[in-house]
């Protein structure tokens, strides 16, 4: 029974990790930008949602909408004001990474100045778990476990069937080729950033209600997203989803026998194992090592 409960909790956090990771996977997979400020996007979505519900007293759907607008806007700003100028003369992978990191640091500390460094959360009766045949799961948990596959299905459709999606997929391999879809590489980068940013909203809202927010949470979100993306295989969205799920389940099951202090190490041992033994990840294309 305990094992079953741990598995259930693992699937729930796995769904959240998958949703955290998918935005990063899109940006990293399509544009090869090491988007460290993905963690900052998460914070902006989370704090935006918190401010709208708890400070301005807006209903939840408007707050979610505001979080989407804020995070998408932030993604666009980062692309236009930071990544594009840095990359104007073929900035190296690392130059972009450092700039992105800098953005993350600025956002984290601005939020800490505005909202304080403490813990904030939005209270909702939906986060209360009820026992069903001895197993505890909250309504919100069911919602997130249900939402995740829907979002991945929609993304699948977008990337397989629409011309923008196909162009984005082509961007990683051959930036010149994508012009045949009638879109410039510049605008595709912008689309990738906006899409990747707004996709973090469900995970951010869910976490704000269940686990709560602190300004330093961004680093962890980033680490999980990176780990899930690499485990899944860079360039594969389904892979990132599976990677997130795997990490969530592994973390939760590790509580069964190991002291809880080791759960982070478990996550990153899995990551290291993948990097060393199977750098192409679960579903990625073969990587030259």
């Amino acid at each position: 029974m305990l094992l079953l409960q741990l598995l259930l909790d693992g699937i729930q956090s796995g769904a959240v990790y998958a949703l955290m990771a998918v935005g990063f996977a899109i940006v990293f997979g399509m544009t090869r930008i090491f988007h460290y400020s993905h963690g900052a996007t998460y914070l902006i979505a989370g704090y935006g949602f918190y401010a709208c519900t708890s400070v301005f007293g807006l209903p939840w759907y408007l707050s979610v909408l505001a979080a989407i607008v804020l995070s998408a806007g932030f993604g666009a700003l980062v692309q236009l004001l930071v990544y594009r100028p840095v990359q104007r003369d073929a900035g190296s992978f690392f130059t972009v990474f450092v700039a992105s990191f800098g953005v993350g640091v600025v956002v984290e500390n601005l939020l800490a100045m505005m909202f304080g460094s403490g813990f904030l959360s939005v209270t909702s009766p939906l986060s209360r778990a009820q026992p069903i045949m001895g197993l505890y799961i909250s309504q919100l948990g069911m919602i997130i476990v249900g939402t995740a596959p829907l979002i991945f299905l929609a993304l699948n459709y977008f990337f397989d069937r629409t011309s923008v999606g196909l162009a984005l997929r082509g961007l990683a391999d051959n930036p010149d080729l994508v012009t045949v879809y009638g879109l410039s590489a510049k605008s595709l980068f912008l689309i990738a950033l906006v899409l990747g940013s707004l996709l973090v909203v469900p995970a951010a809202v869910f976490q704000t209600i269940t686990a709560g927010l602190t300004p330093s949470a961004g680093h962890r979100v980033m680490l999980i997203s990176l780990a899930a993306t690499i485990i899944g295989g860079i360039g594969s969205l389904r892979g990132a989803g599976l990677g997130g799920l795997l990490l969530g389940v592994a973390e939760s099951l590790s509580f069964w026998r190991l002291p809880a202090g080791w759960s982070d190490a478990v996550t990153f041992l899995i990551l290291l194992a993948f990097i060393l033994l199977r750098p192409s990840g679960l579903l990625g294309q073969k990587v030259r090592v």
Partner: peptide, 17 residues
């Protein structure tokens, strides 16, 4: 008794135990 690392943020599994 359940020891938790200072960096742990998901506690549902601890709750189960």
């Amino acid at each position: 008794s359940f020891a938790i690392s200072s960096s742990t943020s998901q506690f549902a599994s601890i709750a189960a135990r």
